[in-house]
Design a protein around this nucleic acid. Structure first.
Lengths: 214, 214
DNA sequence: ACGATATTTAAACGATCGTTTAATACTTAC
DNA sequence: GTAAGTATTAAACGATCGTTTAAATATCGT
């Protein structure tokens, strides 16, 4: 392999991410990964350590920059809003846009990364739990505070239930956006992240804008 | 084992369902199942065929009666409504109640079944695909028709996007209801299916009651 | 009570898993 | 150009997977 080719290390990451997104962690073997990446079986252990380290590295490379963008945008929006709360639609855009934007990236790997994130939140693995907690907790605390200012009349329970439903809708959308056409009998398009983001922001804004109920 | 004990067959199903719900299909081994069920390793293959058949049987025993109850309640509600459309809250109750009711069943197996259903919809397995399609398609077609009468002004795309978000929220709720306390820092309770159903119906009703937007 | 049937058991099967090894090929620096 | 360091390769490792076998045990009809 000449150095004009993409690095072995990157080819492994790309192949592994797509397979993990399709089949999950336990359902994917290192032999499937190295075969799709066109590298030797031993390359994974040589470059990335063991299977768990490879998985964590893939998650980190996707989630970390997304949460950085989210945090930066949130701070910018708060500074711009001054004393007033950040507009609800802006908050939901900050929540969802960095994720849906994966579908529109320059390469073809974005949809796999988004689908993987959608899966990770549903299938708990003991070795990913500390990482995910550490990665999402700081950002979630900040975001929750900002969002709470928009629903001061809601009880904490009502607020958290609505947030749970919204997160569920977002996660489900990430996990199924690649097969929307089949799921809707051809009415919605596959990987239509622009529409998805638009619809999601309207949907989530409506959820939190609704008045207190019981 | 005397015949006063629960049947070996049932003990396998119960143990397997809880493990599949916790660890997924690929993450669960037959040795884990037989150990938790206190039966011999060969008992699974003897009573249930292979691993895939066991998994499908568990899914069928959960999903089939739920969709039957849903269909019966839907037909009853339509007959009672006459020419008018079935109330939106009634439709959402029919959608969600049979699922959340699993948490309140007589035995302790309900939550595992609900959590498993929440997982199944996100992690596609080639051998479950035909079964799930055949099991959900008839019910979904009927339900979609009834729901559509409540949102005639929405475009088909808008309608399907909202339905996708609602289903995602429902699925996410089933998959995480057992750890709501940890996820909300103690504010919401674990396995609180009564509150969950109540909140979900209000949430989903609001989603479809919202006016057409764009 | 006894033979037939059904179930349980311990042991083993081949296949495949993640990982390691040791030899080979390649790249880079001096 | 040659030595040092890096990367790739084929092969093998022990462990564990789903599944099967054949013997032992339990159950049941008559």
């Amino acid at each position: 392999m000449s150095h004009l080719d993409k690095e072995t290390l990157d080819r492994i990451l790309i192949a592994a991410e797509s397979l993990f997104a399709e089949q999950g962690y336990d359902g994917t073997t290192l032999r499937q990964i190295t075969r799709r990446a066109n590298v030797n079986l031993a390359a994974v252990n040589y470059h990335h350590g063991d299977k768990e380290s490879l998985y964590l590295e893939i998650l980190r490379r996707r989630i970390q920059p997304i949460n950085e963008v989210r945090l930066a945008r949130l701070e910018e929006a708060e500074q711009q809003a001054g004393e007033a709360p950040v507009p609800l639609a802006t908050l939901m855009d900050i929540l969802a846009r960095p994720l849906f934007q994966l579908f529109g990236g320059p390469d073809e790997t974005g949809p796999h990364g988004a689908r993987l994130i959608g899966r990770v939140l549903v299938e708990p693995l003991s070795f990913t739990e500390p990482f995910l907690a550490a990665e999402f907790q700081p950002w979630l605390a900040r975001f929750g505070q900002a969002l709470r200012r928009h629903a001061p009349a809601l009880t904490p329970e009502d607020f958290l239930w609505r947030f749970s439903f919204v997160v569920g809708a977002l996660q489900h959308s990430l996990a199924t956006l690649h097969q929307m056409k089949a799921l809707t009998r051809g009415i919605c398009r596959d990987n239509d992240h622009v529409t998805a983001l638009h619809r999601f922001v309207l949907f989530a804004t409506g959820v939190f804008a609704a008045e207190t109920r019981v």
